[in-house]
């Protein structure tokens, strides 16, 4: 039975003439780790701000944990843990002061858990925030966003600015930890290789629209690169082609709905080769490919 934690239906948001989100739709099920992918400026942060009620939508409907973020922002934020990209906090506070300060705002705050996380993440509690390194700052932000045992954790490119080793540790340890606790994680990023091992579902945002949302495994099997003769390209439905480029005497096309297309090519007896793609290549095909794609609703395709 469907138990969506996040429901976004045909949401649009503009800043003056700049249309950041255009009828965007997606759904996140409880307990999933959801990778929200898009290039810089695609609208990921705006979508997250809408989810938290930090911005008002122009059109559409949003429900997070069954609440409308615009109508009940405080109730919602009390149940959500949020870590922004490049989060800035009050530099004059010590880490311990920050934890004590934030605690009363959350009815479910667990100070023992905060201390446990602070020890695990090696947050120097007696150090002023302005003296923290980038990594320590991110880890303090994590403690703040997890110590009230949130039902939903929203991470907006949190590992941005960390060195590669720390990024790997962050993804492996933290996401695995959260998955182990059964929390829903909404993870926004533009680096696919990082989310590939941990994400249950993927949504690709491009120019303010979700161009694809589905299970990670399904996406890998559904999107393939096919090498075939130039004349044979006409056999493939143009709407399924995400990207195409000449490769010697052949054409390399990246398609979605690969199974059906391969069946058809087999039936027609056309020579072809299939190349598996990783998420990076699939993402690239969706956002910079030279095919034509339509935005999708919040259904798995």
């Amino acid at each position: 039975m469907s138990d969506p934690v996040i429901e976004i239906k045909a949401v649009s948001k503009s800043f003056r003439r700049n249309h950041v989100l255009r009828e965007m739709s997606l759904e996140v099920e409880r307990g999933q780790t959801f990778a929200f992918l898009g290039r810089n400026g695609a609208g990921k942060t705006t979508a997250i701000r809408l989810l938290l009620g930090l911005l008002d939508r122009d059109e559409g409907e949003i429900r997070v944990l069954g609440l409308d973020p615009t109508e009940q922002p405080l109730e919602l934020r009390a149940r959500v843990g949020y870590l922004a990209e490049d989060q800035t906090m009050y530099g004059w506070m010590r880490c311990a002061e920050m934890l004590s300060f934030i605690a009363p705002f959350y009815p479910t705050w667990d100070h023992e858990l905060a201390l446990k996380y602070a020890r695990e993440f090696e947050v120097p509690l007696q150090t002023k925030i302005k003296h923290l390194s980038k990594g320590q700052n991110v880890r303090l932000g994590l403690v703040l966003s997890l110590a009230h045992r949130p039902e939903l954790v929203i991470l907006d490119d949190p590992a941005l600015g960390l060195d590669p080793i720390m990024r790997k540790q962050f993804n492996r340890d933290l996401i695995t930890h959260l998955q182990g606790e059964g929390r829903t994680v909404f993870y926004s990023s533009h680096l696919l290789y990082e989310v590939e091992p941990v994400a249950d579902q993927v949504a690709i945002l491009d120019q303010g629209q979700v161009v694809r949302q589905c299970d990670t495994e399904h996406l890998r099997s559904d999107v393939k690169q096919i090498m075939l003769g130039r004349d044979a390209v006409s056999l493939v439905d143009q709407g399924s082609i995400l990207d195409q480029r000449p490769d010697g005497p052949e054409m390399a096309i990246i398609v979605e709905g690969a199974e059906a297309i391969l069946d058809k090519l087999q039936r027609e007896g056309t020579d072809h080769r299939v190349v598996d793609l990783n998420l990076d290549e699939i993402f690239e095909a969706y956002v910079v490919g030279q095919g034509e794609t339509e935005p999708v609703a919040s259904t798995n395709r």
Binding site: C95, A96, E97, L99, S100, F101, A103, P104, W109, H111, A114, L115, A118, R119, E122, V123, P124, L125, Q126, T127
Partner: peptide, 9 residues
């Protein structure tokens, strides 16, 4: 320095 944490406000 991460041993001590003052009680919440």
């Amino acid at each position: 320095g991460y041993q001590y944490l003052a009680p919440p406000m």
